[in-house]
């Protein structure tokens, strides 16, 4: 797994920020900057929320089970 993180990370960084124009982008040009940000935010929010919740509950149950 370490190898893979090591290789992918620069990739991600480079691709996220390097290209100046994103042309086939519905949310970039014909609507406001705020819409773009809202889409970014909600995407990240919806993506991470269940993972965080399930991990928390899973860890809590696991620790409860270990105690008994």
């Amino acid at each position: 797994m370490h190898l893979q993180h090591f290789l992918l990370f620069p990739f991600l960084l480079g691709l996220l920020f390097a290209p100046e124009i994103a042309n086939a982008c519905a949310v970039c040009f014909s609507s406001s900057e705020e819409t773009l940000e809202a889409f970014y935010f909600t995407t990240i929010f919806l993506t991470l929320l269940p993972v965080v919740m399930l991990f928390t509950i899973g860890y809590w149950l696991y620790s409860k089970h270990r105690k008994t």
């Binding site: 809202a38 919806l46 929320l49 509950i57």
Partner: peptide
């Protein structure tokens, strides 16, 4: 708890909808 995860995601969906629609209106 597992039901509340669903409920939380339900409200997360509504919140996302609110933010997206809201951002598009001046």
């Amino acid at each position: 708890l597992i039901f509340m995860v669903t409920e939380a995601m339900f409200f997360a969906g509504l919140i996302s909808a609110y933010m997206v629609i809201r951002s598009g209106i001046e």
